[in-house]
Design a protein around this nucleic acid. Structure first.
Lengths: 156, 156
DNA sequence: TGACTTACTACTAAAATCATAGTAACTGAT
DNA sequence: ATCAGTTACTATGATTTTAGTAGTAAGTCA
């Protein structure tokens, strides 16, 4: 299915992921862990506050603090003060954060095909009510990704 | 952008992710870490052998053993003997593994938009040579995902 | 015979994670 | 005025995971 192997990285470790030429590796620096992904999912579902995330996920507050700070630093979430007295902040999706939705859908679509069974959560268009069935295609040709061989090209 | 919040999970922790009703959470049980994602990327790039993965990723062999075993258990990779004497196995993508490519592309597409800068690895159609620019759309309407509000519905 | 390859396992140190508890700064009800 | 409740955290220590290096088993090749 895939043809060319290239040395598109050197000396990967979990600390220098963001310096890799590969965009997948570089993106995984931020969201390459399940908590960050689940926080992004919940943010898309409309959660904004610390305690909402904490209760939804059952995540330890230390973890949540660290993840929210990282996602904020990296520009996927924005910390916004919604009350001065008492000081209260909420975390809302930035444009980069909203653009992350296709990743969540791709994961969900894969899960629907290969991990469903029993009751599963589903996604709907909020206005029309029709279920969303996401496919990834090439913008130019419209061909679904995965049907044709690909080549990975190293930079320069 | 998103309207309905639902209690689509209870008592998440990193051990029971695969029992969650949410397909995203359930899928993250397998690939919710950067190493597994990078192994899947490399598998799509044509790597099959233990040492190929080890050298490409610089991953500790203990980690690699564990990840390959998990991905094999979960049906994304298949362990295949390619030599009896000496006994040698390789890891090849199953259909479920190949279906994972859109997730990698969605992550790459996000990275291209929000994390590029400097040289980056790019993806091409191996036959036509044209660059691939992946978009996630709804199969029915053809509308790009992320442009319309979504609703997340809990099971039953 | 000895160097080399492949696919690992063993071991230990370092780091991350988990759960629980506690704190700061308030609000709102009695 | 006091006291429970809320929100957004930080502190702490036990447990678990990960990283890195070294070593091993079963061969091949010269």
């Amino acid at each position: 299915m895939i043809l060319v192997v290239s040395h598109y990285q050197k000396d990967i470790n979990m600390k220098n992921l963001s310096n890799q030429p590969c965009l997948i590796a570089r993106s995984l620096a931020l969201v390459g862990d399940a908590w960050s992904m689940l926080i992004m999912r919940d943010a898309h579902a409309g959660l904004t506050r610390f305690d909402e995330f904490r209760k939804s996920l059952g995540i330890a507050p230390t973890m949540l603090t660290a993840r929210l700070a990282a996602l904020t630093d990296e520009g996927l979430l924005e910390k916004r003060r919604y009350s001065d007295r008492p000081p209260r902040d909420e975390y809302v999706l930035t444009e980069a954060g909203r653009d992350f939705l296709p990743v969540l859908f791709a994961i969900g679509a894969w899960g629907r095909k290969h991990r469903s069974g029993g009751n599963v959560t589903r996604f709907f268009d909020a206005e029309t009510g029709t279920e969303i069935d996401p496919v990834t295609i090439d913008r130019e040709t419209g061909a679904p990704v995965g049907t044709r061989p690909i080549r990975i090209a190293a930079p320069e």
